[in-house]
Computed example of a mutant assay.
Amino acid sequence: MNYDGHPVPDHLLINVEHRDDPVSAVTEDDARRRSRAYPKLLWGAPLFGTAEEVDGRWRIMSLLADWPQAARDGLGSHFRRLRSETPDSPENAAERKGYAAAFQLLDWEVVNDLTVNDRRYRIIRAQPLIRMGADGPEPPRPTDPDVAVDRQSGQAQSQMEGFVIDPTANSGLSDALLRMEMVSAFYKAGAVPDDVRGDSQQAVDTHPNVVLLPVGFTVAECDGGSWRPRSLSTYPTPQAARDAAAFRFSDIIPDEDASLDEIREAYARALEQYEAPRGDEFELNGVRCRVTRVECFVRVGPDGPEGPRPSDWDPEPPPERHFQQLREQGLMVDPD
């Protein structure tokens, strides 16, 4: 394939693979049916995480933060851990120094892209979306794996961690169509503030392709005929989402004026009575709930995945700068 007389750059490719195996055929049929039943795509608030470049591709380390600084703090913690795990010896002195310089920089400065010990790291931005139909948000598909929570770890294994952002990877037809639809998508006038819309539109030019990330699941609740997320968190399987939603702490406490002993007693009773729902539709405290499928994509450009945008909500400064501000305001004791 050529692009202006030259081979198409990797970051612009969408490779569509025709798959004849029965599982792929059923998966594609599920996707077609759901695209008709749930035709409206609604974007959620962006997620932020960390990625590292390995062999020319970017690999997700984590994708859990609601704002960029939380992801930067996580990256700083990662470098602290690497330094602590690197033996303190003369031959490792330069490596340990590189990790220390990295987390000290992140403690003070807003940095979204840095190289540490010859490896690149980046704060990345991802866009979740859900499909809506006449009856509400899209539930899990029959072909979505639905395993129970790992009882030893207390959580289902994340599919995001270690995922390689590769725009050249083969896509099924339905995923390729969604990618092509999202390539030119940006916020419409009036839907968001002008600066948010402007950044969204600019991202189409600077990061002109998208890569779909592993699907996640959450629980939505219907209140007065309108659906809203019961939790802002997403989980790797439908059952993990059911488990989390069925045991929300705010549903357990007797009332807002309850004493600590009353809260403890209520929590103990809830643990004894706890039984997570198994279906995709259920009621919690009389409220209709539905396990909801959450798709997610990241924009990519010539230099890899998109980072935070200037208009993204980022309420906190780096930690040491924040501490300094608090000390100047007399709200924190000076360590000296």
Rank of each mutant, 00 (worst) to 15 (best):
D10E: 04
H11V: 03
L12A: 15
L12Y: 15
V16N: 05
V23W: 02
V26P: 00
S35V: 04
R36E: 12
L41W: 15
L42N: 05
W43G: 04
W43H: 11
W43K: 08
P46N: 10
V54Q: 05
W58P: 00
R59T: 12
S62N: 14
L63V: 02
A65R: 15
A70E: 07
R72F: 03
R72E: 11
E85M: 12
G98L: 08
V111K: 07
N112I: 05
R131A: 03
G136T: 01
E138N: 00
P139N: 13
P145M: 01
V147M: 11
V147E: 13
Q152Y: 04
Q152L: 06
S153N: 04
M160Y: 07
V164F: 02
D166L: 12
A169F: 12
L173N: 10
S174Q: 12
F186T: 07
A189H: 03
D194H: 09
D195N: 13
Q201W: 02
Q202F: 00
N209F: 10
E221F: 14
C222L: 15
G224L: 08
G225P: 01
R228D: 00
L232M: 14
P238K: 14
A240C: 05
R242C: 05
F247T: 01
I253T: 15
D255V: 05
I263K: 04
E272L: 12
V287Q: 12
R288K: 06
R290F: 04
F297R: 07
P302G: 02
G304H: 06
P305A: 02
P305S: 10
P305T: 08
E306Y: 07
W313E: 10
E316F: 08
Q324M: 06
Q324G: 00
Q325K: 13
R327A: 01
G330N: 12
